[in-house]
Design a protein around this nucleic acid. Structure first.
Lengths: 186, 186
DNA sequence: GTCTATAATAGGATAGAC
DNA sequence: GTCTATCCTATTATAGAC
């Protein structure tokens, strides 16, 4: 029995990256095999259900990845302003200054989007919840905090769409700068 | 020589609708044939380059469609506030209250996005320009008008992503309401 | 768990009649 | 301009050896 080439977590990470770049519909098994360094048979060993099971696994992991890569700083030490600053830094790095697309958006755009509805809702929900918690801690009412948190995620996603569509990272960077400055209540 | 089943403009409209729903990668020739009511051979008669030429035709038409469907009210009669209101109404109808995705976003997400870069840039640019012109007319400086116009398009696109991803139209409607209220300078 | 080989199908695209 | 029939490739998925 040959040893596993990659731990499952690394396979998931590479699948995520592939779906993010190519979209679900645009990612072929051949590209997935190349991206993971695994043969098709190995992929079907891990994911008997094929591509759609890979997507499910990626999405099951997504809320957690988002948490680790972006939202963790919000719960760290420091004032709300400093924690917000670290989340913005993390966003800038995660989306490579607006050059990388959002996996959530790509999956929501796929033809199998109905299948992905639940995990997508969860992921967006956790993101919004984490920001709203910070805003409440900074003194906002629950309702106002939630609305402003939703608005911040909307602006990030919209900026990623426009940055991707126009080929310019300027709009994404401007939105991040604006959030850094004005997201917290004064 | 059989008569054309549909005028070219109607074919383009149905192609647009298909790409908007399925995305470029997710739209198969079989689905396109069904959606247009044309056989494959007829489609290749109109678009010898196949699917990618169909997409090019859709995108060439896109800036104009956007203009007709959404931006026309901005140049109509009335005060800036009334014209803005009519554009918001048009947006609400065009995106069916947030239930319909944005074709620009879908095309920007396709694997052939590099091919579509130019027309996408043009379409986003015209949209932003039209809103910026209204804001200048309402008294804003060119730079401030442009920045605020970009922000408005970002918020609409972001709201469409989240409405699609969460299955709720609430966020889209809230963004439209906010724009209706606060887009113009006071 | 991974491999090579291959099945089975769906994909985009074309031929030629009308 | 449209049709039916077909081609060819790429696709998803499986079989079976190691």
């Amino acid at each position: 029995m040959p040893a596993a080439l990659l731990p499952r977590s690394e396979i998931i990470a590479r699948l995520s990256e592939t779906f993010r770049r190519q979209g679900y519909d645009g990612a072929s098994m051949a590209e997935i095999a190349k991206a993971t360094g695994l043969g098709k048979s190995s992929l079907y060993h891990y994911f008997p259900g094929g591509k759609s099971e890979m997507a499910a696994a990626v999405l099951a992991d997504l809320a957690e990845s988002l948490d680790t890569a972006i939202l963790a700083p919000l719960r760290g030490p420091g004032t709300p302003a400093r924690r917000l600053g670290r989340m913005i830094d993390a966003l800038d790095a995660f989306y490579d200054g607006g050059r990388k697309a959002c996996l959530l958006e790509r999956m929501a755009a796929s033809v199998e989007r109905a299948t992905f509805a639940r995990p997508l809702q969860t992921a967006f929900g956790r993101w919004i919840d984490a920001v709203a918690a910070l805003l409440r801690e900074a003194g906002m009412s629950p309702a106002a905090a939630r609305a402003r948190a939703e608005e911040s995620v909307i602006r990030i996603e919209g900026a990623l769409v426009l940055s991707g569509g126009t080929g310019s990272t300027e709009l994404f960077e401007r939105v991040l700068a604006s959030l850094r400055r004005d997201l917290l209540p004064r």
